[in-house]
Simulated scan of single mutants.
Amino acid sequence: MNERSLVFFVIVLLCAGFMALSSFEMVQDYIKPASGRSVILNHLMKLTVALVFFVVFLYTDHRMLFSRPVIVGGYVLSIALLVVVLILPGGETRTHRWMNLGYFSFQPSELVKIYTILFLAWYVEKNQLFMKRLFRGFLKPLLLVSPFLFLILVEPDFSTFALLFLTVMLTLYVAETRGVYVLTFFSIALIFFVYTYRMGMLNNILRSYQIERLVSYLKGNVSEQVMRAVEAIRSGGTVGKGMVLGEEKLFVPVVTSDFILAIVGEELGYIGLGVILFSFYGLVHSLVKVVSRMQPIPSVKTFISGFAILIMLQVMVNVGVVSGIFPVTGVTLPLVSYGGSSLLATMIGFGIVGNMILESERE
């Protein structure tokens, strides 16, 4: 697999998302016409913006992104955005994750994911000879990105916090940090989490509804969202009911974002789900193959590897939630789900990767 396969799988997943959202809206309008905003038109607008940013970063020399002024400016901006979103009024669940920009809403943590990988890639480039040392190779980069992790946890957005934490750990490991450091720290973090849960201290970290979800999951209970999503997928069978057919998906909460696989499963069956999952496998595999053929530049390899890890983790969590393996979280399916912030961040990431490939071919 090469760059062409990378582009192919991105297009397949974008088209799959567009088809799923279009079909859902057509069925919804037929069953119960809505007078609100059109989901698909809104998605197209967000996709257009995301593609514009993709092109901008595709033709922006990635070496400029690794310059000290850009890294420092991005660091300050990331913290500023995460602080501002904490100051703004929260929603019904008293969470502070979104910035209302009029017609659009924006989730800063999605862009912070990409910047964090960029920052780690810059750090690895500057400290490549010390990555096997405990402080400079592990503790220092972890301390530098800890403000992002802390502010995201305070929002609270535990799913994004956990995703970003795992991405940082695995990216550092790929960047030749000793595995024993990563494994030991992860074990300590897991023990601390279990301890806070047993001692009833999670109330100081998570919201009540998040704790209820976690406790329900640990007791083996399956949420209504998951049951409805599984029922929609099961009703589709092997080949599905066909595009714009079936009503089970209409009863799945947040089906256009977190549970979009329910739409695919009902209409295109297990075959459609298989195509989606294989496309993600091909996407991540293509990124890995690109890394293996690139020139041995630490910043480039670290960024592409970290970006591949982020996509892989998001897919694993989303699929795990839909199938009931993981507790319900607000993790979208990259490139497929309805969500402007996630789509924008993902396309920016692909734009940076694309420029790295173009510059490598020129050299």
Score class of each variant (00 low, 15 high):
I352G: 09
Y103N: 06
V7P: 05
V226A: 06
T60N: 00
S109G: 11
A189H: 07
E3Q: 02
L120V: 12
R293P: 00
G236E: 04
E363V: 15
F186I: 08
N318A: 03
Y59L: 08
L143K: 04
L118A: 10
T167E: 02
V10L: 14
L129P: 03
T167N: 01
V275L: 14
S109I: 03
R207E: 09
E125R: 10
P141I: 06
E248C: 09
M312H: 13
A16W: 00
V84T: 13
T93D: 15
G246Q: 08
L250Q: 09
L283M: 07
I260Y: 00
R213I: 09
L190I: 10
V145Q: 08
Y173T: 07
V174E: 04
A232G: 07
I11K: 07
T171F: 03
V112G: 10
G73L: 04
L129D: 15
V145E: 08
V264R: 03
Q128L: 08
R228K: 15
S305G: 06
L245M: 06
R37T: 11
I311P: 01
R178D: 01
N100V: 14
H43K: 04
S35P: 05
M131S: 13
Q210D: 10
E359A: 13
I263F: 05
R136S: 15
L151M: 09
V72A: 11
I233M: 00
S109W: 03
G282Q: 01
L142G: 10
E247T: 04
A345T: 04
S187K: 05
E247K: 09
Y281F: 15
G274Y: 06
R63Y: 03
V10P: 00
L166Y: 07
L313Q: 11
R37K: 05
G90V: 08
Y217F: 14
Y181M: 05
L358S: 10
Q295I: 05
L44H: 02
T177G: 01
I263S: 04
Y197Q: 05
I309E: 05
P156N: 14
G240L: 07
S67D: 05
A20L: 02
I31Y: 12
G91M: 00
E212S: 14
V275I: 15
S109N: 06
D258G: 01
